[in-house]
Simulated assay, not measured.
Amino acid sequence: MKAVVCKAWGLPDSLEVQELPDLVAGLGEVVIEVKAAGVNFPDVLIIQGKYQVKPALPFTPGSELSGVVRAVGDGVASVKVGDKVIAFTAQGAFAQQVVAQAAAVMPMPPGMDFDTAAAITLTYGTSHHAVVDRAGLKAGETMLVLGAAGGVGLAAIEIGKALGARVIAAASSDEKLAVCRAHGADDTINYTTADLREAIKAATGGKGPDVIYDPVGGAYSEAAFRSIGWRGRYLVVGFANGEIPKLPWNLMLLKGASVVGVFWGEFAKREPKANMGAMRQLLGWLAEGKIKPRISGRYALADTATALNDMAARKVTGKVVIVP
């Protein structure tokens, strides 16, 4: 089978596609023939050794996928050979085959296509954990989403609307904001042409948002936090900007506000039952049409480097997938 291999820390163009032996299922494991694998910003960081988790070299990147069960190991009764499934793995998804723990594999709902199935685990899982679990967003509250046209940003918009909240989307271009409105955003802010604090003030009538969802970091974080409402919850989701912000602690005091960390991968590992419960709610919302992943591009396995470069250059809206 063919797989993308990271042999040394570096940029996407250093990745290689290699022929490797077919995979074998061990105890409690499932081998899946990959039909689609979701591409996420952490993949760009992981291959450079810049992420919170560093796999041992060499390794195959990619952590969310959909496909067909090829083999099951001893002790696996939840799926069988031939089943269409969704899976989350620590690594290995950018390949024709992947091994996953049975506990991280779930059947695909009837009628779901492989691209959509590969796009719901990490982005929607992250945003559900952030918005529902960590922030406790309620109907009638207001949430500001930074970097709103990306995969987790669009997921946050849709989840916020499913919960009955008002959602303000902030992004770097009018084209991206049009995508955000198509996914349910009530109001939008172009933070390259508008003063972010003034725009937030105008959009919230001076009250400030109850929740701020920030997967970007960098210079906009402090401006956003200074605009948060009383008892607001600021979600630290990631640092796509490349810069980890440093916030003055007096801001939390003055607003009675909380800074809340979001690490979905660790949550999924430590609290698998809670994570599966979240996934069931997401799949229910998907069936009801309340959420709909945007697949903006499909790449062959040989074009994985291009997909990651496009992700790093912020050319992606919503999700893109690798199709082995």
Rank of each mutant, 00 (worst) to 15 (best):
H128I: 01
I228H: 03
G160F: 10
V98H: 02
P107A: 03
I157T: 08
A199G: 06
I212S: 04
D195P: 06
I228P: 11
V216Q: 06
G184R: 13
A178S: 10
D133W: 02
L146W: 06
P109H: 13
F114G: 01
H183D: 03
K201A: 15
E158W: 12
G151P: 10
A155W: 00
E158D: 01
G147L: 02
L137Q: 05
P215D: 11
G164L: 12
A102C: 01
P109W: 13
L144T: 08
H128V: 00
G205E: 08
S127D: 06
A148D: 09
G153E: 09
G147Q: 04
L137K: 06
N190M: 11
T188K: 05
H183P: 01
E175C: 05
K176E: 05
A224P: 05
I212T: 09
S173E: 07
S173H: 03
A118G: 08
A194M: 11
S173M: 04
I168Y: 02
A135I: 12
T188Q: 08
I120C: 06
T204G: 07
G205L: 06
D210G: 07
D133M: 02
A171V: 06
C180H: 07
A219V: 04
P107C: 00
K207Q: 13
A178I: 01
G205M: 07
G92W: 06
A139V: 02
V167P: 13
A202V: 11
A156E: 13
G147R: 04
C180L: 03
G206C: 11
K176R: 14
V98M: 00
D174K: 07
Q96C: 02
G153K: 13
G160M: 12
M106E: 14
V167C: 14
G92E: 08
V105W: 00
K161N: 05
L177W: 07
E222M: 03
G164S: 11
P209H: 05
P109A: 13
T192W: 04
T121R: 15
E175Q: 15
R226G: 02
S227R: 13
A130L: 13
D210L: 03
L196K: 10
M112C: 13
A156T: 12
V179H: 12
G184D: 10
A149W: 00
P215I: 08
A156F: 09
A156N: 14
V145Y: 09
L122A: 00
G184N: 12
V211E: 08
V211F: 07
D113E: 07
M108N: 12
Y124K: 10
R226M: 01
T116Y: 13
A93K: 10
M143T: 14
Q97Y: 07
D214W: 00
V152G: 07
A155F: 01
A185E: 02
S227C: 06
G160Q: 14
V131W: 10
D187V: 05
G136D: 04
M106D: 11
A139G: 15
A194R: 12
I168G: 00
L154E: 11
I159P: 04
T204C: 05
L122Y: 01
T204E: 09
E222G: 00
D210H: 13
L146D: 05
